[in-house]
Design a protein around this nucleic acid. Structure first.
Lengths: 154, 154
DNA sequence: AGGTTGTTTTGACTCTGTCAAAAGAGGGGG
DNA sequence: CCCCCTCTTTTGACAGAGTCAAAACAACCT
């Protein structure tokens, strides 16, 4: 096991133990990566994790992210046309605003304050579980650089 | 060109001409398929189209759907974890409710009546273009058949 | 420390969609 | 009415994202 210093705000070990998941280097590193860079995809997480653990496989990152998501530690979002992104902010019903040019994602607090924060006019016989809101727009970086996508998107 | 009878509600030829697109059998058949079965994916459209035009390729369906979407005749939605779905209802700001078990999709009229029908609390510097709402729940078929997915989903 | 069980690695595979070149068809001009 | 230019469609290879599965390995309970 490797000691990690990036545990300022979140406490990976406690999160994992609390979820009944074994504490492994990979999982700690993935949680740290998500804490540093929310809305990261598998590639971004793998890159971050590889700095501490060079032999980490892409599949391991997939495994960990799926495990964390199932355990309720992470949440997966998937804006149309993009690969899945992950974040640790979970349990509060917040939403996202996505840049249509560069794919950058920012958090948006719940529109009306409670979950599910919206009620459809007609549910067509569905039992409603959740309302997911995605705002689309152009991020401030792309507004300036009308020529090339913002670097922050990658 | 093959004569189509399924043009009761929508008029494919007029739609295509109006958009400056050439009128082809494939395009007429795809529009007819979407008129009959909104929220269809490429596979479903291909199956429907193949009944009239057995030699239609999957790529042709992709082409047509992309062309229709760019022309504003069709709209593409992509619920998380599902392939893209297409519908002809376009221009009204309506939303969708998706079954978490079988993937069935139903339309939901705009939550408050105007587009964009929601305003985020903070836009994080983004220029807002659109608000997309996806409701998640369990469809009536899946409520009954708690064991196997509803056939309507396929 | 030892063994059981859960993780990680490795690599093949599926699914969805795009790219590109050649063959074919729409439709405006003659 | 026919021709020809251009747009569509076919065909087949390819790319991106993710899953499946078996063997090697590590966490952690006792």
């Amino acid at each position: 096991m490797v000691s990690m210093e990036t545990t300022a705000t979140v406490e990976p070990i406690a999160l994992l133990r609390g979820a009944g998941l074994r504490v492994t280097d990979s999982r700690i590193a993935v949680i740290a990566a998500l804490a540093d860079h929310p809305h990261s995809g598998v590639d971004a997480v793998l890159t971050a994790v590889s700095m501490h653990l060079p032999h980490t496989s892409r599949q391991a990152v997939h495994n960990v992210l799926n495990d964390l998501t199932e355990a309720g530690i992470a949440r997966r979002i998937e804006p149309a046309g993009q690969p899945g992104l992950f974040e640790l902010r979970v349990g509060d019903n917040h939403h996202h605003i996505v840049c249509q040019r560069c794919g950058a994602v920012a958090d948006v607090d719940c529109v009306t304050g409670h979950a599910p924060c919206l009620t459809p006019s007609t549910t067509s016989g569905f039992d409603l579980t959740e309302a997911e809101v995605t705002f689309w727009g152009i991020c401030s970086a792309c507004k300036v650089t009308q020529a090339e996508p913002a670097a922050s998107a990658l």
